[in-house]
Design a protein around this nucleic acid. Sequence first.
DNA 1: TTACTGACGGAGA
DNA 2: CTCTCCGCCAGTA
Length: 100
Amino acid sequence: MPTTDAQIEQVRALVAAIPRGRVATYGDIATAVGLSTPRTVGWIMRTDAADLPWHRVLGANGRPAAHLAQRQLALLTAEGVPIRNGRVDLRTARFPLPAT
DNA sequence: TTACTGACGGAGA
DNA sequence: CTCTCCGCCAGTA
């Protein structure tokens, strides 16, 4: 099943819905939208999410993608997100995404 | 057309 | 804890 425009919009909407100081994972978003792989979410962030709070999206391990780590962690710290050793504590910062 | 890449993730070792 | 390997799918060569 190819990714639809509607799904891309849903991904954008969910990312935009993450409150300041909270985060979500690529996998969470993929599941909520019904995508078969979180990679697709990564692809959307890369291409069509420059105007969204992209820094609130992390990998399942609580770490940002390597090339963005420095910048992303700085932004998250500024929002008060709990970070330990470059790793976000998902147990407390994870935002329960609204299922559609 | 095939092959490789990548804002990913889970299972093994 | 770290490091591979494999499935996934859109884009690129």
